[in-house]
Amino acid sequence: MSFVDYAIYGAFGAVSLAQLLAMVRLILGPHTADRILALDTMTVNAIGLIVMLGISQGTQIYFEAALIVAMLGFVSTVAYCRFVLRGDIIE
């Protein structure tokens, strides 16, 4: 096992911990905006986890998954915010 593998396992642990911390903020709130922000952060962290899975398995096939999660995360954040701001998503 080379030092790259240790780095990957360490990074998996750190990003998973980050995901947990963001989830605590998602549960605590207290404002609507905090929950939206926590969900957005969790999406970004999930992209990091998917990309690291690709590095550790040495394949390129997780690229599409990461790209789709990135796009869905952005669109869902905008949709939540528009719903709170205007009471409607598509006017």
Partner: peptide, 24 residues
């Protein structure tokens, strides 16, 4: 290349963790 991969993995993990820690 291995050293460069390790450095960017560590930097990425630390910044991601700091971002979520700050959120909390």
């Amino acid at each position: 290349l291995d050293i460069a991969i390790t450095i960017s993995l560590v930097v990425g993990a630390v910044f991601t963790l700091v971002g979520s820690f700050g959120l909390l």
